[in-house]
């Protein structure tokens, strides 16, 4: 069938065009971060000056450290709490379980603008106020549903008989969890942790409403800089961020199949 083959090639070409649409702006941004002209003028002349001046920009460096610190703590807390909750939801039957599972979707589905402004109001009202602690509180809450969903998906593939077998062989609850269940769900836990890191590290909207001038994260700082006017320094730091977060997701993909293929 000649028509079928032509259509198939057109399809491949189309997907290629889509990939170009998705990646070209990012590639151009990365190239411009190595261009001499601060106004993105062509012809292109190579420089690493913008990365050097980025290194000297203490405000951006401080914000970067805040972002990394918050992302790491968010990852640890949400992975531990989330995995525990997934285990409970998998292992036990009780009334209201469906309700608890349904409660995981509002944090994912409600626009961050609404969640972020609501957090600002509430944290202010109860005296937590704004700043890094408030941002951490928010990030963990945003990451938890993702961790629970990912770990629960992995638990679906776990045979509960294995726990029973271990128990009948004399293992106590802690040993069963530690030696049987945890090793099995570990890929899910790692994927959940990487998701949590990405959610926190890339989070802009919620951080934006909870940040204060001294206590801020990298995306918030970038947004402020963009609104003041573009600078190649911002290109440089943006390029670093995009490379880091893409590498992170590639890593996640190794532990967690997105495609739903068996």
């Amino acid at each position: 069938m000649v028509t079928t083959r032509i259509l198939e090639w057109l399809g491949r070409l189309y997907v290629g065009l889509l990939l170009a649409f998705l990646y070209l702006p990012i590639i151009i941004m990365a190239l411009m971060s190595f261009n001499v002209s601060p106004f993105y003028q062509l012809p292109f002349e190579w420089t690493t000056e913008w990365y050097a001046s980025l290194w000297r920009n203490e405000q951006l460096i401080a914000a970067t450290w805040n972002s990394i610190e918050i992302a790491v703590i968010t990852t640890i807390i949400s992975t531990v709490l989330g995995s525990a909750a997934s285990l409970a939801l998998f292992r036990y039957e009780f009334r209201g379980k469906k309700f608890l599972q349904a409660l995981l979707f509002p944090p994912i589905a409600i626009p961050w603008l609404i969640t972020g402004t609501a957090m600002l109001i509430f944290f202010f009202g109860v005296g937590i106020g704004r700043g890094l602690f408030a941002i951490l509180l928010g990030h963990v809450a945003l990451a938890l549903p993702y961790v629970i969903v990912v770990v629960s998906a992995r638990l679906q593939t776990f045979a509960p008989e294995l726990e029973e077998a271990a128990r009948s062989l004399g293992a106590n609850q802690w040993q069963v969890t530690n030696r049987v269940t945890l090793p099995w769900i570990m890929p899910g836990v790692i994927a959940g942790g990487l998701f949590a890191f990405a959610v926190s590290f890339d989070q802009f909207v919620v951080s934006y409403f909870l940040a204060t001038p001294g206590q801020t994260t990298l995306p918030v700082e970038i947004y402020a800089a963009i609104r003041k006017g573009f600078t190649p320094e911002i290109n440089a730091v943006s390029t670093i961020i995009i490379v880091v977060s893409m590498a992170l997701m590639l890593l996640t993909a190794r532990f967690f199949k997105f495609g739903g293929e068996k």
């Binding site: 998705l22 702006p25 151009i28 941004m29 590290f201 961020i241 995009i242 977060s245």
Partner: peptide, 18 residues
């Protein structure tokens, strides 16, 4: 296809400015 979607949204919007 899905990789950029998990990377920083703010930065991707900014890249269009160029």
């Amino acid at each position: 296809v899905i990789l950029p979607f998990w990377s920083n949204g703010l930065v991707r919007i900014f890249s269009w400015a160029m």
